[in-house]
Amino acid sequence: MSIWEILAENLRQGVVTLRYPQRVPPPARYRGLVQIELEDCVGCASCAYVCVSAAIHVTEERETFCWSYDPAKCTFCGRCVDACPTSALQMQAECPPIYHCAGALAVTYTRAYPRCEGCGKPFKVATQILRQRAYTEVSGEVETLLRLCPVCRQKEAIKSMVEARRIKEATR
């Protein structure tokens, strides 16, 4: 093609650019703002560990943990999403809104640890996804156990073991 043919072709084809507010929709895999499903988060801070620009912070208190995210610092590399063991993080497949000052879109979520049904102390809970990964079948018994803190769970386990042995001996 010579340049003249290209010019003619362009003229024939018509306008291909868009005026400003119009835009091409982003693809399905677009890496937008990071979204968290707080119910699934275990507060392991893997996301904060892999975050190069320190956009994600996880801070732990005695009874709560905070997950905070500042899109102004985010590089949208998606490594937090890949590193999340419970798939609690997702990236929005749409362009983030335009904002004027840094930190305008920053979010902080606080999640209180549930209290142990045994001793009443707050503890880090295993999420649904982790439970399903650990136990092929989440039975009612397991559910009860998981509502206890690790210490109480241990006690409960020992108790049931002792009980089981007692029954075994009694049957013998």
Binding site: P27, R29, Y30, R31, C77
Partner: peptide
């Protein structure tokens, strides 16, 4: 962008 979700830094 279709493959990686970004036009510049493909990660």
């Amino acid at each position: 962008e279709t493959i990686s979700g970004n036009r510049v830094n493909y990660a």
